Structure formats: structure tokens, C-alpha cells
Amino acid sequence: MTAPYRRSTGTARGEARRQDLLERVTEDLAEHGLVDFSLRRAARAAGTTHKVLLYYFEGADDLLVQAVDRLRARRIDNSLAVAAPLEGTFAARVRALWPVLIDPRSGHRVLEQSTGLAMYDPARYAKFGREATEQYLPALLALCPPTWSGQRRREVAEMTLATLRGLLLNRVIGADPASVEAGLAALLRCLEREETA
């Protein structure tokens, strides 16, 4: 849907205002999730009106996509800050990511809900799944041992991402926490075997 107002980020001040609004909406999403997200709710969270948001964003979907992207980028940055400096194996680095991925402050509920939207309405929200992969894969590739070939790094990173996504979704839908931890332990064993192969 096209917004009736033009987007404005042509000046440094306009861009700073747009970023401030986006940050406020992102914080609201992290706290309250995607349920009942609307332009009016976003405006209340940002302390402004929906017309002001339409001046800076192309509509509710544009704002939602940008806020989810921001949450995901924050989660990736926090994960890398914990895992990248570790001297251990790839499995140890992935293990170090887990507490960051499930931290409520990471907006994990929203990120998993956005994956659900991509499955529910792919024509409208496919970007959530595709962009998540594009954002997460480089981070996982960076954690792989540098001695691995590019193909091997890509294959292991893809498998790790798919498994972590499944475990995170299981947590959100209320799976037994012990079964989620067992799945994580199995992934880590698999990665340890891969690294020693």
C-alpha cells in the first residue's frame, strides 16, 4: 500500500528523526511482540501520530520490516560480540550464542513470530525469512574455522542456522525446555564431530 505522504530523510535532521522513531517502535516490538501491531500502536509507542510515521516510512509494513531488521541486527551483533572472541571450537562458539539468542531483551519472540508471518503470508512477508538468512549466514560463516573450504563453511553454517531456527521456534511454541536443550546438545555434538573430521 502506498503512503499518502512522501518519505523524508533528505536531511541529517530528518534522518535522525526517522532513526529515533524507528528505535522507539523497535523497542515496543521487542517488549510487546507482533500481536496487534499497527501504525497507530507504533505511533503511540513513538510518541507521535500515524501521519508523522507515514511522513518518514512507506506504511505499517515498511516500518515493521525495518524494526524487525533492526532487532535482528542487534541480536547478531550481540551474538558475535560474545562468540567471535572465543578461542574454542565452532561448537563452543555456537554454544556461546545460545544465551544471547534466547535472551528476552534480544526480541527473540518477535523474530520467531516474524518467521511465522513469512510462512503464513509469503507474498507479503517472505522478506522476513529471506532477509533473516541473509543476515545470519555471514555471522555464522565468520565463526567457522578458517581452515575449512568455503563450501564446507557454507554447508555447516546453513545446517547450523536451520537447526537453531527450529530450536528457537520450539521454545516459542512452548516445547519442553529439556527437549530444546537436548536438541541443542545434539547439534553441538554434530558440530564437534564435523570439526574433527
Rank of each mutant, 00 (worst) to 15 (best):
Y5T: 11
S8P: 05
G10R: 10
T11N: 12
T11E: 10
A12F: 09
A12S: 11
R13D: 14
G14W: 13
R17S: 09
R18S: 07
D20G: 12
D20W: 09
E23F: 09
R24S: 13
T26E: 06
E27K: 12
D28M: 08
L29S: 00
A30G: 03
G33H: 02
V35W: 13
V35Y: 14
D36E: 15
R40M: 11
R41F: 09
A42Y: 10
A43P: 04
A45I: 02
T48N: 02
T48Y: 02
T49D: 00
T49V: 02
K51N: 11
K51L: 10
L53C: 00
L53R: 00
L54F: 00
Y55M: 10
F57L: 06
D62Y: 06
D62K: 11
Q66W: 04
Q66R: 12
V68C: 04
V68Y: 05
D69V: 08
A73I: 11
A73K: 11
R74L: 08
D77G: 09
N78E: 06
L80C: 03
A81Q: 00
P85V: 01
G88P: 01
G88A: 04
F90G: 02
F90P: 00
A92D: 13
V94A: 02
V94F: 04
V94L: 01
R95L: 00
A96G: 01
L97E: 03
L97G: 02
W98Y: 03
D103T: 07
G107H: 03
H108A: 15
V110C: 04
L111V: 10
E112I: 15
P122S: 12
P122F: 13
A126R: 14
K127M: 14
G129W: 01
E131N: 08
Q135P: 05
Y136T: 15
L141V: 12
A142C: 08
A142P: 13
C144K: 02
P145S: 05
W148F: 01
G150D: 11
G150S: 11
Q151L: 14
A157M: 09
M159P: 06
A162M: 04
R165C: 13
G166Y: 09
L167P: 11
L168G: 15
L168W: 12
L168K: 13
I173G: 09
I173N: 10
S179I: 15
S179R: 15
E181C: 00
G183F: 09
L188D: 01
L191K: 03
L191P: 00
E194Q: 13
E195S: 08
E195Y: 09
E195W: 10
A197M: 14
